[in-house]
Amino acid sequence: MMAYMNPGPHYSVNALALSGPSVDLMHQAVPYPSAPRKQRRERTTFTRSQLEELEALFAKTQYPDVYAREEVALKINLPESRVQVWFKNRRAKCRQQRQQQKQQQQPPGGQAKARPAKRKAGTSPRPSTDVCPDPLGISDSYSPPLPGPSGSPTTAVATVSIWSPASESPLPEAQRAGLVASGPSLTSAPYAMTYAPASAFCSSPSAYGSPSSYFSGLDPYLSPMVPQLGGPALSPLSGPSVGPSLAQSPTSLSGQSYGAYSPVDSLEFKDPTGTWKFTYNPMDPLDYKDQSAWKFQIL
């Protein structure tokens, strides 16, 4: 009977010793046993002879290597770790002494450095960015050149030099007046198309007034536009458009034309069986010896 009264063996659950049927240790109110408190290391007290050895090595170098620390530790009968900690504390003490010396050398008012006064946003004049500046400075420094007289040679050079070769001289006033084509001369031969040399188009003023001019072949195509416009036809070669000034309004060009419109200028042929003959000019830059190549039959 006494065997049943004795408590059973101890069981360990999660490293906790349980005594038989008792489960009081598993209750929430019972805390787990805490780790033992780490003991504080005792402070090391250095003797005068030990301090002399350490100070002598510190005077040589503030960062001794492990071999120098072990050698000193053997002399003063201390572990190497204590020597390492002593050098660490000695360097910190040396830095603190240097900072105190710097503070003593500075004057009393030198510690508080005078800061520059901050400028207020409204006091300083700042350039306004509302208006974009002129990058080319046209509004201040540029002045347009004065327009020359209508009959000045410089204007003629600016007008005619675009179309004339570089080897030719500017046309005088008398020749510029001949550039304007007359109405009857352009409409006299509506079906004849003559190819003149390129030099005649640039230099010869008579080429624009003769039936064999460069633009005589364009007349049949330009004249039928007159009834559609409801007024006189516009002429690209009329009046002052080739003269001194090219800047004319469309209203000033509306009254200039080749001449009176005639039914002869239409595109319809009077004789459907007729042929169109292209007159060959020996001055043509295209060297075609066979003139029969310039004739064709309209079917």
Score class of each variant (00 low, 15 high):
residue 164 S to N: 02
residue 150 S to C: 04
residue 232 P to K: 14
residue 208 Y to P: 01
residue 182 S to K: 10
residue 288 Y to I: 09
residue 262 S to K: 12
residue 173 E to K: 14
residue 146 L to V: 04
residue 221 Y to V: 03
residue 179 L to V: 04
residue 272 P to E: 10
residue 232 P to H: 15
residue 140 D to Q: 08
residue 118 K to P: 01
residue 79 P to L: 09
residue 14 N to S: 08
residue 18 L to I: 06
residue 208 Y to G: 01
residue 258 Y to G: 04
residue 296 F to Y: 01
residue 244 P to T: 04
residue 65 D to M: 13
residue 74 L to Y: 05
residue 163 W to F: 02
residue 83 V to M: 14
residue 2 M to G: 04
residue 142 Y to F: 05
residue 182 S to Y: 14
residue 270 K to C: 04
residue 41 R to Y: 15
residue 11 Y to M: 03
residue 108 P to M: 11
residue 140 D to T: 04
residue 175 Q to A: 08
residue 195 Y to D: 00
residue 244 P to W: 12
residue 295 K to G: 04
residue 199 S to A: 11
residue 53 E to A: 09
residue 194 T to F: 13
residue 77 N to P: 14
residue 263 P to A: 13
residue 148 G to E: 05
residue 211 P to G: 04
residue 179 L to K: 07
residue 216 S to F: 10
residue 194 T to Y: 14
residue 152 S to T: 05
residue 65 D to A: 11
residue 83 V to G: 13
residue 81 S to R: 06
residue 48 R to Q: 05
residue 22 S to Q: 10
residue 13 V to P: 00
residue 272 P to L: 09
residue 114 A to I: 06
residue 95 R to W: 15
residue 87 F to E: 13
residue 146 L to N: 04
residue 6 N to D: 05
residue 118 K to E: 01
residue 262 S to F: 13
residue 50 Q to P: 11
residue 277 K to G: 00
residue 78 L to S: 12
residue 124 S to V: 07
residue 27 H to L: 14
residue 127 P to E: 08
residue 105 Q to W: 05
residue 236 P to T: 08
residue 94 C to K: 10
residue 63 Y to S: 15
residue 295 K to V: 15
residue 289 K to D: 02
residue 271 D to G: 14
residue 25 L to H: 02
residue 275 T to S: 03
residue 150 S to F: 11
residue 205 P to C: 14
residue 52 E to G: 00
residue 107 P to V: 03
residue 42 E to T: 13
residue 249 S to Q: 04
residue 34 S to R: 09
residue 287 D to G: 13
residue 2 M to A: 00
residue 214 Y to W: 07
residue 14 N to R: 13
residue 153 P to K: 13
residue 84 Q to N: 09
residue 161 S to V: 15
residue 133 P to R: 07
residue 32 Y to N: 02
residue 252 S to Y: 12
residue 60 K to P: 14
residue 135 P to L: 07
residue 55 E to K: 10
residue 209 G to F: 13
residue 225 M to E: 01
residue 109 G to A: 09
residue 166 A to M: 03
residue 242 V to C: 02
residue 115 R to H: 05
residue 264 V to N: 02
residue 167 S to P: 04
residue 178 G to F: 13
residue 276 W to L: 02
residue 145 P to M: 05
residue 232 P to C: 10
residue 78 L to P: 14
residue 8 G to I: 12
residue 175 Q to S: 10
residue 64 P to Y: 14
residue 74 L to W: 08
residue 33 P to W: 12
residue 53 E to R: 09
residue 139 S to A: 06
residue 207 A to I: 10
residue 103 Q to C: 04
residue 262 S to G: 10
residue 126 R to S: 08
residue 90 R to F: 14
residue 124 S to E: 07
residue 77 N to T: 10
residue 221 Y to R: 07
residue 210 S to A: 10
residue 203 S to H: 08
residue 21 P to E: 01
residue 96 Q to F: 08
residue 165 P to D: 01
residue 208 Y to I: 07
residue 143 S to G: 06
residue 75 K to L: 07
residue 160 V to T: 00
residue 74 L to K: 06
residue 141 S to R: 14
residue 173 E to P: 12
residue 211 P to E: 00
residue 2 M to E: 00
residue 99 Q to C: 04
residue 66 V to P: 11
residue 256 Q to H: 05
residue 283 M to D: 03
residue 55 E to G: 09
residue 270 K to N: 01
residue 279 T to Y: 11
residue 212 S to D: 01
residue 199 S to E: 03
residue 227 P to S: 07
residue 219 D to P: 11
residue 100 Q to D: 07
residue 52 E to D: 06
residue 39 Q to N: 07
residue 244 P to R: 11
residue 211 P to D: 01
residue 78 L to M: 11
residue 36 P to Q: 05
residue 175 Q to T: 10
residue 6 N to T: 08
residue 151 G to W: 13
residue 44 T to A: 12
residue 173 E to W: 15
residue 127 P to Q: 10
residue 58 F to K: 15
residue 240 P to K: 06
residue 288 Y to S: 03
residue 15 A to H: 09
residue 265 D to N: 14
residue 97 Q to W: 07
residue 110 G to M: 02
residue 141 S to F: 05
residue 62 Q to V: 09
residue 24 D to H: 14
residue 5 M to A: 00
residue 284 D to K: 13
residue 104 Q to T: 09
residue 80 E to P: 06
residue 19 S to C: 14
residue 3 A to M: 11
residue 101 Q to A: 04
residue 212 S to F: 15
residue 151 G to V: 02
residue 32 Y to I: 03
residue 150 S to W: 10
residue 75 K to H: 07
residue 4 Y to P: 00
residue 20 G to L: 13
residue 151 G to Y: 07
residue 67 Y to E: 04
residue 216 S to A: 07
residue 278 F to T: 00
residue 218 L to S: 00
residue 77 N to E: 11
residue 178 G to V: 12
residue 242 V to H: 06
residue 195 Y to N: 02
residue 155 T to D: 02
residue 293 A to S: 09
residue 168 E to Y: 11
residue 243 G to M: 08
residue 58 F to H: 11
residue 164 S to F: 15
residue 251 T to C: 08
residue 79 P to T: 08
residue 117 A to N: 02
residue 84 Q to F: 12
residue 42 E to D: 05
residue 202 C to K: 03
residue 50 Q to S: 06
residue 217 G to I: 09
residue 201 F to W: 09
residue 23 V to Y: 10
residue 257 S to F: 13
residue 15 A to I: 14
residue 59 A to G: 03
residue 222 L to W: 11
residue 226 V to Y: 10
residue 200 A to I: 13
residue 183 G to E: 01
residue 101 Q to T: 04
residue 37 R to K: 07
residue 215 F to V: 03
residue 64 P to R: 14
residue 255 G to P: 02
residue 268 E to T: 13
residue 5 M to Q: 00
residue 148 G to D: 05
residue 57 L to I: 09
residue 209 G to V: 08
residue 160 V to K: 07
residue 228 Q to E: 02
residue 246 L to F: 09
residue 89 N to K: 14
residue 193 M to V: 10
residue 133 P to S: 07
residue 253 L to C: 02
residue 243 G to P: 04
residue 36 P to L: 08
residue 285 P to Q: 06
residue 156 A to Q: 02
residue 293 A to V: 13
residue 262 S to Q: 09
residue 109 G to Q: 09
residue 223 S to R: 12
residue 229 L to Y: 05
residue 203 S to T: 09
residue 277 K to I: 12
residue 223 S to M: 11
residue 157 V to A: 00
residue 153 P to W: 15
residue 122 G to T: 03
residue 258 Y to I: 07
residue 135 P to M: 05
residue 109 G to H: 08
residue 232 P to Y: 15
residue 227 P to Y: 13
residue 26 M to D: 01
residue 135 P to S: 13
residue 70 E to C: 13
residue 79 P to D: 03
residue 39 Q to S: 04
residue 153 P to D: 00
residue 193 M to C: 03
residue 297 Q to G: 01
residue 121 A to V: 07
residue 60 K to H: 05
residue 248 Q to H: 07
residue 265 D to W: 15
residue 119 R to E: 01
residue 247 A to V: 09
residue 278 F to W: 00
residue 43 R to Q: 11
residue 207 A to S: 06
residue 76 I to E: 14
residue 74 L to G: 07
residue 71 E to G: 12
residue 278 F to E: 00
residue 189 A to K: 05
residue 13 V to M: 07
residue 201 F to P: 02
residue 10 H to S: 05
residue 157 V to E: 01
residue 213 S to D: 01
residue 45 T to V: 07
residue 28 Q to G: 08
residue 43 R to S: 15
residue 74 L to F: 10
residue 60 K to C: 05
residue 54 L to W: 15
residue 157 V to P: 00
residue 148 G to F: 06
residue 34 S to E: 03
residue 125 P to K: 11
residue 13 V to I: 09
residue 90 R to I: 14
residue 269 F to H: 00
residue 229 L to V: 04
residue 6 N to A: 11
residue 239 G to Y: 12
residue 196 A to C: 07
residue 94 C to D: 04
residue 3 A to C: 08
residue 140 D to I: 14
residue 298 I to C: 00
residue 68 A to F: 08
residue 155 T to Q: 06
residue 81 S to G: 05
residue 269 F to E: 00
residue 83 V to N: 13
residue 168 E to N: 07
residue 109 G to L: 03
residue 115 R to S: 01
residue 43 R to D: 11
residue 69 R to Q: 14
residue 254 S to F: 12
residue 68 A to W: 12
residue 214 Y to Q: 02
residue 199 S to G: 10
residue 64 P to E: 14
residue 4 Y to E: 00
residue 284 D to L: 15
residue 242 V to F: 09
residue 150 S to Q: 03
residue 14 N to T: 15
residue 284 D to Y: 10
residue 156 A to M: 13
residue 92 A to Y: 09
residue 76 I to T: 07
residue 137 G to K: 02
